[in-house]
Simulated scan of single mutants.
Amino acid sequence: MELDWGLGQYEPTGQSLLPISEIVVAMSEPLAGKRVVDLGTGTGNAALLAAERGAVVTGVDPAARLVEVARKRAVERGVQADFVVGDAASIPVADGGADLLLSVFAVIFAPDADAAIAEMTRVTAPDGLIRLTSWVPGGSMMAINGTAGKFMAEVFGAPKPAGPEPLAWHDEDALRAAFAKYGFGVKVERRSMDLTAKSAEEFLAKSAQHPMAVSAAQALASRPDGAELQAELERRLLAAVQEINEDPAAYKVSNQYAIVTARRG
């Protein structure tokens, strides 16, 4: 089942990732007058930054609640941007309707990578480009997701593969092969960002309302031993994030990520 990104509160995660949206948008300037599509806009970070630079912006997200959050932020900031419900396999934008398509840690979660790439390339103008970000294996994001995924598989059994194989969105060779069939070339740049907190416990507490965490908690709560299972999951998550902590006096983890740029030719 596809994750409902409207669950819980994605807003704290969106705020922590704002610096990366700022980098990606700055890399894409000048934007005045350009048609920008922000795929998986979430709370609207990249969309609003592009709109403030004079772009004609459409933010697309599958979660209706987050679309409303992004619309409210646009009003509060006094910028014009359209936000619509839609997903990566069916982007509600005309062929060639985007001079720039952005997706900051969003399309990488699409259940069908090839369908998403087909759609992104469809809506990108002939001289336009696609710019997205993806996590590189390692770091706190992978530690949490990997630990939680392994635990949920122990409890409920490993899910049967449904659909195509996942794409390594950080891997240049894999991306080149995936985009080449649509006539696009790819370049990948790696960077790093730090996530910090006063402690590992605080870091996990901030993550507790993330849609993935809420979805897992709901699934565990359906079991008669749900409380015990939730406590065990939290114990394992704490051990996982403590193991990669780089600051014994507080909490800091360097997270490697890739900025992927794709264009025709």
Rank of each mutant, 00 (worst) to 15 (best):
62 P>K: 02
98 A>V: 06
126 P>Y: 12
75 V>K: 08
87 D>G: 15
71 R>L: 02
109 F>T: 10
56 V>I: 07
117 I>R: 10
44 G>T: 10
101 L>S: 11
38 D>V: 09
138 G>W: 03
56 V>E: 15
59 G>Y: 06
135 W>H: 15
132 L>M: 15
128 G>I: 11
92 P>K: 07
91 I>P: 05
63 A>G: 05
84 V>H: 04
50 A>Y: 12
44 G>I: 09
44 G>S: 04
55 A>M: 13
92 P>C: 04
138 G>R: 11
84 V>T: 13
43 T>D: 00
79 V>R: 07
91 I>Q: 02
123 V>P: 10
139 G>C: 02
139 G>W: 04
88 A>C: 08
63 A>V: 00
39 L>F: 09
133 T>F: 07
88 A>K: 07
123 V>M: 02
125 A>N: 02
76 E>V: 11
73 R>V: 02
108 I>S: 14
78 G>Q: 03
58 T>Y: 01
67 V>H: 07
146 G>F: 10
114 D>E: 14
129 L>A: 12
106 A>K: 07
102 L>F: 13
124 T>D: 11
66 L>W: 08
93 V>E: 12
90 S>K: 14
48 L>N: 06
125 A>Y: 00
99 D>L: 01
135 W>K: 09
134 S>T: 05
62 P>Y: 05
52 E>R: 15
139 G>L: 09
62 P>C: 09
68 E>C: 00
46 A>K: 13
102 L>G: 03
101 L>I: 02
126 P>S: 14
126 P>M: 05
116 A>S: 14
101 L>D: 09
80 Q>V: 11
59 G>N: 08
72 K>H: 10
113 A>K: 04
111 P>M: 11
133 T>H: 13
77 R>H: 01
108 I>P: 00
146 G>W: 13
58 T>G: 00
143 A>Y: 04
81 A>G: 02
51 A>I: 03
109 F>G: 01
110 A>T: 12
59 G>A: 08
103 S>H: 07
46 A>F: 06
38 D>S: 07
111 P>I: 06
75 V>Y: 00
118 A>N: 10
112 D>G: 02
119 E>M: 01
60 V>F: 03
142 M>V: 01
130 I>M: 11
127 D>R: 14
116 A>V: 11
87 D>N: 14
139 G>N: 05
53 R>T: 02
